[in-house]
């Protein structure tokens, strides 16, 4: 009888713990948790100081609100050979789409480098040219102060870990920021198109 009681307690505790870690049996990984968390809580963009490829500095949060546009943000580093390349290709494609739809006034692209030591404004400028980025649609930036990088990455749920080859591994996704300055959604490759179409219909 006592065994049944103890077993029942263990069972309840075990199910509770699993329920808690999986967000009510909805997710198994940190990445899924990150996405759900952003779309539910919609945290505001932090007011960290960013420097864009022209060398001009701006406060992230204020910049979004003043621009009064939707922002699609990804995180990269320019010496990356793998994931950032596909992010770059995706952004090139989205840039094309934005221009086709005439949405330059409503949507802007932002690539933030998490490697400020290497990616100076000059390097970003060169990278932007290499990616054929149009400044009125696509901005490249990095943090002005390395200490602010953590806040930024944490808000966007980006985990960056150095690999042993001098590069980094990081989770990649496009984060949509509303004109109000709030993070609203994490999109996979290709899934931003429906939102762009939606915006076009509203315009």
């Amino acid at each position: 009888m006592r065994t049944v009681l103890v077993s029942a307690i263990f069972l309840v505790l075990g199910i509770w713990a699993t329920w808690a870690i999986t967000g009510g049996f909805e997710l198994l990984t940190t990445e899924q948790a990150r996405r759900l968390d952003i779309s539910r809580k919609q945290p505001p963009v932090p007011g960290v100081r960013l420097i864009e490829q022209s060398g001009q500095a701006f406060r992230f949060g204020a910049w979004v609100r003043e621009g009064n546009k939707y922002l699609i943000v990804d995180f990269i580093y320019t010496s990356c050979q793998t994931l950032c390349r596909s992010l770059g290709t995706e952004f090139q494609r989205l840039q094309q789409r934005i221009i086709e739809h005439g949405l330059q006034g409503g949507v802007h692209l932002l690539s933030v480098s998490f490697d400020p030591a290497h990616d100076t404004p000059a390097v970003l400028q060169q990278y932007a040219r290499h990616m054929r980025a149009m400044p009125e649609v696509w901005t490249f930036a990095t943090v002005g102060d390395v200490r602010e990088l953590d806040v930024l990455l944490k808000t966007f749920g980006v985990t960056v870990i150095p690999d042993r080859l001098g590069g980094f591994q990081h989770n990649a996704a496009l984060v949509w920021v509303a004109p109000s300055g709030k993070l609203v959604r994490v999109a996979d490759f290709g899934s931003s198109d429906s939102w762009l179409n939606e915006l076009k219909r509203q315009n």
Partner: peptide, 21 residues
Amino acid sequence: HAGISGMLLASMVLMFWMIPR
């Protein structure tokens, strides 16, 4: 009794720590 509670505890702990998150 018959190690039931202990084995149940152990299996749940092990399964929990295999969840990626």
